[in-house]
């Protein structure tokens, strides 16, 4: 009876996992096909990888994407950490309103963020391109960093800081030698998290990117609208590898801090 029940649920789970992973496996498998379509496998070949590395437009875009992601993650991590430190100092109503404002961009649909930023940049006369994309990415990354760092700050025992003062530390010393080391796992996890957010973003970038500048997601979109191109498969295999490395790095960092649940949950904003 019990065994029987188990096999049904096992079967169900197997089907769900097949559905979840089949498209991904499918992409990667065809990246090694000698053919040009995702219909029939024509034998092993690396020609699409060769095409990819010869595609200078694509290489430029990869660099653009990486530069935007690294810069956005770095700046957002600094501003977000400062924000978390500032929020930590507040109490009651002020704190609640700051947290609510912080969450506005977390819950807003990407189209809304994209459209409103487009209006914003146009009004300020900022030319659409690298700067507008970078600013947008920084903007939607900051609240994520805050949400990753704040729990670490809240976990800190208040007597820890008192102890630092008691032992003669200045405010700056208490911050740099006691608080920051203690919340480093949160900051590191936040950095990795927003890095992936920036790398993955499509909708916001699509609105504010203009003509001259493109990121990977936007480029894939415009190529995918033309139909199948196995160069994209090759690219996706490489990106898959990169994401796995990022996930690995991220878990290595966040494992020290332990807060897995919260951290995974934050990724929900990515749903569109």
């Amino acid at each position: 009876m019990k065994k029987h029940h188990f096999s049904w649920s096992g079967l169900y789970l197997t089907i769900v996992f097949i559905i979840l992973y089949a498209p991904i496996v499918y992409l990667v498998v065809y990246s090694f096909s000698a053919g040009t379509t995702m219909e029939k496998y024509h034998g092993f070949s690396l020609r699409h990888y060769a095409d990819l590395f010869a595609d200078t437009r694509m290489i430029t875009i990869v660099f653009n994407t990486l530069i935007v992601a690294l810069l956005a993650a770095l700046i957002a991590t600094i501003v977000g950490t400062l924000g978390a430190l500032a929020i930590k100092e507040t109490r009651g109503k002020v704190r609640n309103s700051l947290l609510s404002l912080n969450n506005v961009l977390m819950v807003s649909p990407d189209v809304i963020i994209g459209a409103s930023f487009l209006i914003f940049f146009t009004m300020l006369g900022i030319r659409l391109g690298f700067v507008s994309v970078l600013l947008s990415h920084i903007a939607f990354c900051i609240p994520i960093v805050v949400l990753m760092v704040l729990p670490k700050l809240n976990e800190l025992s208040p007597t820890l800081v008192d102890a630092a003062y008691d032992l003669g530390a200045s405010r700056w010393q208490a911050l740099s030698q006691v608080i920051l080391p203690a919340i480093t796992p949160g900051i590191g996890a936040g950095f990795f998290m927003v890095l992936t957010y920036s790398l993955d973003d499509f909708a916001v970038t699509f609105f504010v990117t203009g003509n001259g500048f493109s990121t990977l997601s936007v480029e894939i979109y415009s190529r995918a609208r033309q139909g199948i191109n196995l160069e994209i498969n090759a690219l996706s295999a490489l990106m898959l590898l990169a994401s796995l490395l990022l996930v690995g790095g991220y878990y290595l960092i966040s494992k020290h801090g332990g807060r897995r649940h919260r951290v995974i949950a934050v990724k929900e904003g990515d749903a569109q």
């Binding site: 769900v16 996992f17 499918y26 219909e39 894939i220 996706s236 898959l240 990724k267």
Partner: peptide
């Protein structure tokens, strides 16, 4: 196992959607 369910969310959304263009096409799998 939960991590395995979560893992696909770390893969670029565009790519997952793109995969379905191939899967669903007239002569696709």
């Amino acid at each position: 196992w939960l991590l395995l369910v979560i893992l696909p969310t770390w893969i670029n959304l565009l790519l997952k959607t793109y995969a379905f263009i191939g899967l669903f096409s007239r002569t696709g799998s």
